[in-house]
Design a protein around this nucleic acid. Structure first.
Length: 476
RNA sequence: UCCCCGAUAGCUCAAUUGGUAGAGCGAGCGGCUGUUAACCGCUAGGUCCAAGGUUCGAGUCCUUGUCGGGGAGCCA
């Protein structure tokens, strides 16, 4: 009886001699006048295809097999043999070829040739069938697995923070509002009655009658909620989707993206940096080891330096440079920058690129930023002018991790909130963590897609998430 | 949101100073072949993004819009 096996398994040399069934989608078919056809089948289990030898003697050879084209779905029963040709260790001599579904070659959008990523984005439902997007999917899966393993092995608890949140002031950018109200109907009412309020946000809408009796939003970060669990269970992390309604149109931004956010009690900024460095190295090492074929592909077709870069990073220490030292380096560099490099200004992309790509040529962790340019929850240093923030910057992608030691002192935290125009009242539960058994703690956020971009060398973030959400784009 | 660039065959792209639309790949047919981004020959295939405008004449110049790319801001 034939075993149902993956293409990955059938490709292994030790499968020679086995009677197997493989199932997948046709990539190409080449006919030989010697009386048979080569069919390449891929099922996503690995980068490579399995080559099927289909003899003309098969009963459905003329009726079906010779009509097979890219995109058709087949199941093949046959004997795995050592392949005499170049390019593959094994092939399958087909005894039975079942055609599950044909794909009309005139209308099927994917061809044997390479397509531009811009075009593939317009057929996001079919692009997983391409080499590149299959490889991205496998690498992304591997990275997610590594993230969980990394934290689980270190005793971090996976906490599910809410997707819908009522706190509209997490300070990480514009939010998507969530409502169960019929906004179209409410808008009509509003414009009929009070003409003056047209155009005002929420005009004519009474959110106290909404589902949550208040305005609600999609989360921009699980950090504040994760802190509540860190202040009880010590080491925690969240890993889930986050949403930003910013009108960002860049190859590094998405409206919906996945973020890893560890939050750990008794961790200071040093511990936080070590944790971030360890996590990134773990992801890189695992992907290199576990996805060699996919990485080889990225190295050949996408970015000829990715493997070398990742190997180098895994072996070397991330540099740690204070914000103040970074400003000194930039000022003394002799480089001309569009934006001034004065102490107190936030670093611009050009500055980050100079540091990671020209000056240090590797990942850098910057820390101790000016308090004015960082959010309220970051712990103020003894100098009073900096906070314990840290950003991990990598070449090309830029900021991949942003984190900090959190302010655990109630009075200072409240003062910082008022400084930034926030009302401590609305953060009563967050402040309770400092009121009752406060603890030094730290955490960071890792943008999953940016990490995948860095690992694969893919230049546009829209091509490392299955279904990208960006301004004006949610077709699939 | 701002700046720059682009949109022509199914895909990737050409088209001179404004003068009747081209190639490669893909597709169809034929040839050849243990092939592997196969190869060789022939054939078909176009609302030149949309709407206005300038002109005897617009793929080409102008305006507006839509979509895409690059850069910037916001950030992860």
């Amino acid at each position: 009886m034939a075993d149902i096996v993956s293409v990955a398994e059938a490709r292994r040399a030790d499968s020679v001699g086995r009677e197997v069934v493989v199932q997948g989608w046709v990539r190409t078919r080449r006919d030989s006048k010697a009386g048979f056809s080569f069919i390449e089948v891929n099922d996503g289990s690995c980068f490579g295809n399995i080559q099927i030898i289909a003899e003309a003697a098969l009963p459905n050879y003329e009726s079906e097999i010779k009509r097979l084209s890219p995109g058709c779905c087949v199941g093949v029963t046959g004997l795995v043999k050592a392949s005499p040709g170049k390019g593959q260790a094994t092939e399958i001599q087909a005894a039975v070829v079942v055609v599950h579904g044909l794909a009309d070659v005139k209308t099927y959008p994917l061809q044997k040739k390479g397509h531009s990523f811009e075009f593939l984005r317009t057929i996001a439902h079919l692009r997983p069938r391409t080499n590149t997007f299959g490889a991205v999917a496998r690498v992304r899966n591997r990275a997610c697995n590594s993230i969980h393993q990394f934290f689980q092995e270190r005793g971090f608890l996976y906490v599910h923070t809410p997707i819908i949140t009522a706190s509209d002031c997490e300070g990480a950018g514009a939010m998507f509002q969530v409502t169960a109200l019929d906004l179209a109907a409410d808008k009509e009412r509003g414009t009929k009655g009070e003409k003056g309020e047209k155009g005002v946000k929420g005009a004519g809408i009474d959110f106290s009658k909404d589902f949550f009796n208040r305005p609600a939003y999609l989360t921009v970060s699980g950090q504040l909620e994760a802190e509540t669990f860190a202040c009880a269970l010590s080491k925690t992390y969240t890993f889930g989707p986050t949403f930003r309604a910013e009108n960002s149109n860049t190859p590094r931004h998405l409206a919906e993206f996945w973020m890893v956010e560890p939050e750990a009690a008794f961790f200071d900024l040093q511990d936080d940096m070590e944790l971030a460095e360890g996590l990134l190295k773990r992801i890189f090492r695992d992907v290199l080891q576990e996805c060699p074929e996919d990485m080889q592909f990225f190295n050949q077709r996408i970015d000829k330096t990715v493997i070398e870069t990742l190997e180098h990073i895994v072996e070397s220490e991330f540099l740690r440079v204070s914000y103040s030292d970074a400003i000194d380096i930039l000022r003394k560099s002799g480089q001309r920058f569009e934006f001034p490099t004065a102490w107190g200004n936030d670093l611009q992309v050009e500055h980050e690129r100079f540091l990671t790509e020209t000056h240090f040529r590797r990942p850098v962790i910057l820390y101790d930023y000016p308090r004015e340019i960082k959010p309220f929850y970051m712990r103020v240093n003894d100098d009073g002018r900096t906070v314990r923030a840290m950003d991990v910057l990598v070449p090309k992608v830029g900021e991949i991790v942003g984190g900090s030691q959190r302010e655990e002192r109630l009075d200072l935290l409240e003062r910082r909130m008022r400084e930034q125009g926030l009302d401590p009242e609305s953060y009563w539960w967050y402040l309770d963590l400092r009121r009752f058994g406060t603890v030094p703690h730290s955490g960071f956020g890792l943008g999953l897609e940016r990490a995948i971009q860095f690992v694969t060398g893919m230049s546009n973030i829209r091509d490392v998430i299955p279904f990208p959400r960006t301004p004006g784009n949610a077709e699939f």
